[in-house]
Structures are given as structure tokens and as C-alpha cells.
Amino acid sequence: MLGGGRAAPPGRKVMVVADPTQESAGALQYALSQAVFDSDELILFHVENPNWWRTTLTMFLRKPGLMSLGPASASASASATTSVEGSLGREDMDFLEEMKNACKLGKPKLQVRVEKKVVMEGKDKATTILDQSKLLGVDVLIIGQRKSLSTILLGYRLPGGSARGTKPIDTAEYLIDNSNCTCVGVQKKGQSGGYLLNTKTHKNFWLLA
């Protein structure tokens, strides 16, 4: 399910990890343009941490054209971007609603819903996402991924602690390795540069936008 050109499978549940970040916007763009069909249900899932997202929301909104879906949806994506940018400075702006609106503009027939979950004590973001994907019976999990030099050199720790417990967790890598369903890590390469995708069986798979 990495790229286009496929017949639509029976309706699936596709979950996109939704955060106010450029990586999350790229994951949503990939999902809408390459991965979901009108017969699917798209779930925007956000792990709530209010002290975190409020500090990054403005940076996310100032990125031009993050919700662009390519030439086929240029008009719709432009409207979505205008809507998001018009919300700059509004403290009560709900980025999840803006993402949902972008989905409706890009794929009007697609069923979209928003799910939120607060991280429980003793758990972290990765295990919270994993548990929720199992609970909802998700078929495909999509998450924005950022590859940094430190991530490549240090790897990631397992939630709950391990011999590698002092290393920062890479949520996307953990989900790719441990999800029962197909999990796709997405790196968006510019507005027209395509996507670098990672799954359990495909590493650094290049897909043109």
C-alpha cells in the first residue's frame, strides 16, 4: 500500500497520527493523496499533551502549503492552507479540526473522525498509539517521521525501559517494528519532492508525489 495505481480494497480503518508538526502534515498529505480510498475510514489520532502542542502550533501553521495535495487537488489544498494560515494567533484554534477540514476538501466522500487520548501514567506516546490502534481495529497506521543524525546513531529505546533505556524513543520506528497492522513512516521531501517511506518490510522506499 506504499503507492498509487491500485484497485480500491474493501473499506479499511486508516489511522494518521495527528500533531501540529510538519512531519504530521506530510503524513496526512501522503495518506490523502496515496493511501486512502473513499471507502475507507480515516482516523486522525492525537496523543494529548497540552504543554507540548501549544509551543509548536505557531511554527506548524507558518509553514506554507503543508496541506497541499498535489496538482489534482490544488484548489482544495489552497483553500485548506488559507484556512489554517487565517487561524494564526488564535489561541482557541483546534489544529485537529483544521486537519479534518483539509481531509474534507481533498476527499469529500471520505469518512473522517478525530480521536484523542491522554498519555496515562507509566506509558508514553508510542505505546498509547499502539494500544489505541489495536483497540480501534486499525488496518493501516501512518505517522510522520523525522530522520536525524542522532536517531540514526543512537537508535531508540523501548517503552518501559530496557538496556537501551537511556536513549530517546523514536516513536515512528517503534510503531513500525511493533504494530500488528501495516505501519508506514512518512518523510515528506519538499512540496513536490515525493515521500521517503518506511515499513517493516520496505526501508527508505522512494515515492514520487
Rank of each mutant, 00 (worst) to 15 (best):
K107I: 08
E98D: 09
W206L: 14
F60H: 13
S87G: 15
T128D: 06
L105N: 11
K188E: 08
P10Q: 05
W52P: 00
L175A: 09
K117M: 05
A25L: 02
W53N: 14
L2V: 11
C103K: 07
M1V: 07
L149F: 06
G137V: 08
Q111P: 01
D124P: 09
A209S: 14
N180C: 02
S39H: 02
R157S: 15
Q111H: 10
V14H: 06
S73M: 07
K63M: 02
E41P: 00
P108I: 10
E121G: 06
E121N: 11
S39Y: 00
N198Q: 10
V36K: 03
L141Y: 07
R54W: 00
G5K: 08
W52K: 05
P64R: 03
L96T: 05
L175Q: 09
T199H: 01
H202E: 14
A74M: 11
V114T: 15
L69T: 11
A18H: 10
V118I: 08
T151Q: 13
V114M: 11
G144Q: 05
L175Y: 07
Y195I: 04
A209P: 01
L28R: 10
L69Y: 01
T82V: 07
T151V: 06
P20W: 09
P159W: 05
F60V: 01
N180K: 11
K167Y: 08
Q132L: 06
S39Q: 13
S179C: 15
D92E: 15
E91A: 15
L69R: 08
K189M: 13
E91S: 14
K203N: 12
E23P: 02
L175W: 03
M67Q: 10
V17C: 14
F60C: 13
T128C: 09
G106H: 07
L136P: 04
F45L: 15
G106Q: 03
R146V: 10
L136V: 01
K13S: 07
Y174L: 00
T166N: 04
I169C: 06
S39M: 01
K203D: 08
G89I: 00
N198L: 00
Q191W: 05
A31R: 03
K125F: 03
K125A: 08
D131G: 00
A7H: 11
L57W: 08
K203V: 13
A72K: 12
G11Y: 11
P108S: 12
L135Y: 04
Q34N: 12
D38I: 03
K200Y: 05
E115R: 12
M1L: 09
V186M: 07
M99T: 06
P159G: 10
V36P: 04
G161P: 08
Q132P: 00
S148A: 06
R62M: 09
L42E: 09
G165S: 05
